[in-house]
């Protein structure tokens, strides 16, 4: 594994640790609803400050259950992850294709004569 990959994996590990540690350390235990969403807490805070406040508009569509809502959130993440994966996959494929083409070029040049130098350079890239 080269250094680049190691750094990338370490980045992911730190992010995962940052998310898991609050759970593992039980940092939500003092709350009535541990690990509730901050957005929902803000709604509660609003009703604390202004008990009479009534939302004057309701969502046009509301997921009928928590399951459907989480499915839609997963869909959102999946669409995003899919597009990102497509992008990086495509780039990688193009790069490999270009490298292969260059290698073939170098091979052709070698059979022509003075190509050793060009080829070793291609391998490094």
């Amino acid at each position: 594994m080269n250094r680049n990959t190691k750094i990338n994996i370490l980045l992911v590990v730190i992010v995962v640790a940052l998310a898991v540690l609050p759970l593992a350390l039980g940092l939500g235990d003092h709350k009535d609803e541990p690990f509730a969403g901050a957005d929902a807490q803000a709604e509660t805070a609003i009703t604390e400050i202004e008990p009479d406040y009534e939302p004057w508009f309701t969502p046009l569509y509301e997921p009928p259950s928590g399951e459907v809502e989480s499915a839609l959130f997963a869909l959102q993440a999946a669409i995003g992850a899919g597009v990102l994966a497509y992008y990086f996959g495509l780039r990688r494929g193009r790069r490999q294709g270009a490298e292969r083409a260059r290698a073939q070029e170098a091979d052709a040049a070698r059979s022509g004569g003075e190509a050793k130098d060009t080829r070793s350079r291609t391998e490094q890239v």
Partner: peptide, 11 residues
């Protein structure tokens, strides 16, 4: 789309 736990005990 990712709601992640935080040190304050909320997500």
């Amino acid at each position: 789309a990712l709601k992640i736990p935080s040190v304050t005990g909320s997500c």
